[in-house]
């Protein structure tokens, strides 16, 4: 570049720093609230620095729970969220790897029909068909179960499309070579396709784990028992309309705990996260 870049660079630092601070501020404030006591917050006198109640608040939230409506220790909610997120992520990878393998490596009647049947589900977000789906799950007897939380959400076109697209880039010569070596469909899948797909699998896992952990409307409808609550639902129930009854310090502690796992996943696996996000939209 031929220009003097100093001014522009300073401007860039300034704008980026402001951006980072604005994005971080709500979370910082939530963290601060999780280290004060209820009275300080309710008065609207909460300082902008952490207080002395960190250990107490986190201990009470995790292992005892709020006094109000939910009562459930948040550690249990986190376990529910974790099971749900893992089931959705792994389930989705499992069924979509299989279906993509069939669509790409086999020629059979109705192949394109099957593909379109899966592809069209891109257009059916759960919010659109929420009550009929609820009814189906209720009829099967999946209310208040992990299956009910996860199974309806694991079928969607994104995974299948992602793997299909990746399989198409695997050179045909590899399959021909495997065939000459006498490998059948299972060995080719296990020894060639799966090892090559590991990055795609990991990237999809990161995205789907976040997706599963953050689910709101679906668990809100199909869980009625406190013991089946996920953490994202739990926090909503802690905040009661009458402000005075809300134990804000515990609700904010729960919010921090609810953000921690998915945010950690994004930061620690940034490369995979970016790959998963960008690939999914190709």
């Amino acid at each position: 570049m031929v220009e003097n870049r100093t001014f522009g660079d300073r401007l860039a630092y300034l704008i980026l720093t402001i951006g980072v601070l604005i994005l971080a501020f709500p979370v910082y404030l939530t963290f601060v609230a999780s280290t004060w006591d209820a009275a300080t917050i309710i008065n609207g006198q909460m300082p902008l620095y952490p207080g002395p109640f960190f250990a107490e608040n986190y201990y009470r939230t995790l292992f005892i729970g709020t006094a109000g409506t939910t009562r459930e220790p948040v550690i249990n909610m986190m376990i529910n969220s974790f099971v749900m997120a893992m089931a959705i992520a792994l389930g989705k990878i499992f069924i979509s790897v299989l279906s993509a393998y069939a669509v790409v490596y086999y020629r059979f009647p109705f192949r394109m029909a099957a593909f379109w049947l899966i592809f069209l589900t891109l257009m059916l977000p759960v919010e659109v068909r929420i009550f009929p789906t609820f009814k189906v799950v209720a009829d099967i007897g999946f209310l208040d179960t992990y299956q009910g939380l996860a199974v309806p959400l694991i079928a969607s076109a994104t995974g299948t499309l992602l793997f299909r697209q990746f399989f198409m880039t695997i050179p045909d010569e590899l399959l021909e070579a495997s065939k000459i070596d006498g490998a059948g469909p299972f060995r080719f899948f296990k020894d060639t396709v799966l090892p090559l797909s590991m990055t795609t699998v990991a990237a999809l896992f990161v995205i789907q784990f976040i997706y599963g952990w953050n689910q709101y409307l679906w668990p809100l409808l199909i869980t009625t028992k406190d013991s089946m609550q996920t953490i994202v639902i739990g926090i909503k129930k802690m905040i009661v309309t009458a402000d005075a009854l809300t134990e804000w310090q515990l609700a904010m502690t729960t919010a921090v705990l609810a953000m921690l796992p998915p945010v950690a996943v994004v930061i620690l696996m940034q490369r995979l996260f970016v790959k998963g996000l960008v690939d999914q939209e190709k």
Binding site: L23, P26, N214, Y216, I239, M259, L277
Partner: peptide
């Protein structure tokens, strides 16, 4: 530092701003 809010659940984002 700019991409992590993607991982925050919409419902939690709501709680943060409401607070």
């Amino acid at each position: 530092l700019l991409i992590w809010p993607y991982a925050v659940a919409p419902a939690i984002a709501g709680v943060l701003w409401m607070f």
